[in-house]
């Protein structure tokens, strides 16, 4: 399975993270998104006319939407990540997968503006991001009252992976996570999952690593 990837893209990271958590090996094809704008070049536009990355290729299958890629990886390798298929929980997974686009359009655009100088109205983007974060916070609080740590279930699903990266990187766009305790607990729960991998700006939980063992002679 080949992933057209940019190391600083949260959407690409969703796919790398999902693959790591489900044990799928990816063949990574790095794309010079910045400064080279390779995703707007002829080779990648032929593959994805929308001019976005990630793009996932598996045989004849070409996927250009990250949520579809998460579902594909989960269905193929670890169906438990799709969540419960009863009507309510299944719809909840779909609800958050769709909701994740609002995070991309607000938090993601604010981050690109603040970090890589992409155009945008930063005040409007931050206001939209704040509205989306409040909705996510409320959803997570309700889940906690039900005794569930994750968005659509008592275990993590594709919905959590779809929403996590842009939220965790909110400070990159100048949006603080300080007002959202449920989001911070949820972020911690996701980073504590076995097989979790990091990306620049999303740090691993150092304190959960085993105590370092000093070698002889070092003190």
């Amino acid at each position: 399975m080949k992933l057209y990837d940019y190391v600083l893209s949260p959407s690409c990271y969703k796919v790398r993270l999902m693959a790591a958590l489900t044990g799928v090996a990816l063949d990574i094809r790095p794309v010079d998104f910045h400064p080279g704008a390779e995703h707007r070049g002829p080779e990648l536009l032929a593959l994805n006319p929308a001019g976005s990355i990630p793009i996932l290729e598996d045989g004849d299958l070409v996927l250009t939407e990250s949520s579809a890629m998460l579902v594909y990886l989960a269905a193929k390798a670890a169906p438990q990540w799709l969540g419960n298929d009863a009507a309510g929980p299944a719809a909840s997974v779909q609800q958050w997968l769709s909701f994740s686009h609002r995070l991309t359009a607000s938090l993601g655009a604010a981050r690109l503006h603040e970090m890589l100088l992409r155009p945008g109205n930063i005040d409007v983007l931050r206001a939209q991001a704040t509205a989306a974060l409040r909705e996510l916070e409320a959803g997570l609080v309700e889940q906690r009252i039900r005794g569930q740590c994750f968005l659509a279930s008592d275990r993590p699903t594709v919905a959590d992976i779809a929403c996590f990266p842009y939220v965790a990187l909110a400070p990159d766009g100048g949006v603080s996570l300080d007002p959202y305790p449920a989001i911070r607990l949820w972020s911690r729960a996701i980073r504590a999952i076995d097989g979790f991998i990091e990306m620049p700006g999303i740090h691993r939980l150092h304190e959960l690593k085993p105590e370092p063992v000093l070698e002889g002679g070092e003190a």
């Binding site: 600083l8 990159d172 620049p200 700006g201």
Partner: peptide, 22 residues
Amino acid sequence: TPMTDLIHFQQTIFVQDRSILE
């Protein structure tokens, strides 16, 4: 090493620093 890999290696390092710097 392909040019894009060299760029991504250095961008990875620098963006790891960015949140600390801010």
